[in-house]
Design a protein around this nucleic acid. Structure first.
Lengths: 154, 154
DNA sequence: CGAGGTCTTGAATTCTTTCAACAATAGTGG
DNA sequence: CCACTATTGTTGAAAGAATTCAAGACCTCG
């Protein structure tokens, strides 16, 4: 949360992902469940040495944060949204149908835009025939290559 | 660098800071010197276990990246710039005079805005009496509390 | 069926970007 | 030391994009 009440969503995590690598005793971020969730905690060694596996996860998380910067730093809302959708699709295994468990507000706070902009640009993708909204929380990708292109992945 | 030629500056590092914690063999980012620079490399153990000290640095770097997200995600350019200046001032030890070794382009790519917007908002702060430009690369803070307030640090 | 939350869409405003011109600065070679 | 040149920085005007404010549609749950 920011001092003025605004919120920056740093990441969406799906099953099997690890988060919470904050070093010190002071925590700057918090996590929220948006679907029913099970958690496992990972303890570090008493002497503070991380295992290579855990270290790798922490570094992966850092790279992800830095790559998220690339997205949020983009100027065009449509592009940001495309990257978000492609990322989500890949992590859900394939570009057929994307499940959006989060609200438009969550997406907006993740991408640094208002919910109206999220909605408008989803509509823009819809009317361009790139995707179809089965419901507001379920998206069917009709033209994956167009989406990839917008996301600068092609 | 982004596929379309745009650039996202992830961090500015000053003397004594550590960077380059990319886990795998593939590197997504690169570093550039903008002042004359000395470097020391840190090697990790053969078994891949990081020392607690190095781990702490890596995690600090991750937190920094996530906090940078908070800045880039902000909508207002003036606010972003204020946060940038306050951060730089604090790392340079005090708010008297800030040294800007980087170009406006670097600042813009760091904050996710054009150089013109950087320049314009610096001018805005100048005409508001918040700061004075000794030169384009050297800034004197006249009203620190105003700057802090803009940076949502007060 | 009703109520609350979520989502979409429109219109006006505000802000940034883009394009262009010019000023200031630093570096180069005579 | 000075003119020349390239880079960097500033500013203006127009265009474009997102935000804000507002209204209404849709969905879910009790």
């Amino acid at each position: 949360m920011l001092a003025d009440g605004r919120r920056q969503v740093v990441a969406f995590h799906i099953a099997g992902e690890t988060f919470g690598f904050e070093g010190g005793k002071v925590r700057s971020f918090f996590a929220e469940c948006i679907v029913s969730t099970g958690l496992t905690t990972v303890e570090i060694d008493r002497d503070g040495r991380y295992s290579p596996e855990l270290m790798e996860l922490a570094l992966k998380e850092m790279i992800r944060a830095q790559e998220h910067l690339l997205v949020v730093g983009k100027q065009c809302a449509l592009e940001k949204l495309a990257v978000f959708l492609v990322d989500l699709a890949e992590r859900q295994g394939g570009l057929g149908c994307i499940d959006l468990p989060m609200t438009r507000t969550d997406i907006g706070d993740y991408l640094g835009m208002t919910i109206e902009t999220v909605s408008r640009n989803l509509s823009k993708l819809r009317s361009a025939g790139v995707l179809r909204l089965r419901s507001s929380r379920s998206i069917e990708i009709l033209k994956p290559q167009r989406l990839y292109c917008l996301a600068s992945k092609l």
